[in-house]
């Protein structure tokens, strides 16, 4: 059994990581790279979406990704998205719509919404349901989350709303 050293760009920084066989991206992010614990571990089988990350801008489930195959690729977690376009509006929409209770699914939800709105700035109700279909939430019943997505889409498409969102974020 040989451990491998490889280079991975995480949250904008090139990182050197050590991996064994089928070490997952989730394990590396949570345990090797300064505890990026916005990446949760809800099921370790791709069923809950709480470990969602962006790989080269695409939404991935980090618990199913062998990190050995990701050399040279760029991974973003919620920690690295602080300055990213639109993220503040999405976060504020989640706050304003009370779209989280226990919070365990929330980072994965926010990354999923970010990926959705990047690809489709004005999603329909059905498109939102479909986009969220891989992220489980046991507390909210999803309705406030769907409202938050609609709210975020509106804020990001309207200048005044967007400004209010960023003020709310500071306050």
């Amino acid at each position: 059994m040989t451990a491998k050293i490889l280079s991975l760009n995480v949250n904008g920084r090139d990182e050197t990581i050590l991996c064994d066989g089928l070490t997952t991206l989730q394990e590396v992010l949570r345990d090797q790279l300064g505890l990026l614990t916005s990446v949760k571990d809800g099921c370790t089988q791709g069923g809950c979406g709480s470990c969602s990350v962006l790989v080269d801008g695409e939404l991935w489930l980090s618990c199913l990704a062998p990190v050995a195959a990701l050399a040279g690729r760029a991974v973003m977690t919620l920690e690295g998205l602080k300055q990213s376009a639109g993220i503040a509006a999405i976060q504020q929409s989640f706050i304003d719509n009370s779209a989280a209770q226990c919070g365990f699914c929330t980072p994965g939800m926010i990354l999923t919404v970010k990926a959705l709105l990047d690809a489709n700035p004005e999603p329909s109700h059905d498109e939102i349901l479909e986009a969220l279909s891989g992220n489980l939430c046991r507390c909210t019943g999803y309705l406030p989350i769907v409202e938050a997505v609609k709210d975020a889409a509106a804020r990001l498409s309207g200048g005044a709303d967007a400004a209010r969102a960023s003020e709310g974020r500071e306050g």
Partner: peptide, 12 residues
């Protein structure tokens, strides 16, 4: 294809 999993799963 659309009926398989959620969006993240389909990306992989």
């Amino acid at each position: 294809a659309r009926q398989v999993g959620g969006p993240a799963l389909r990306n992989m």
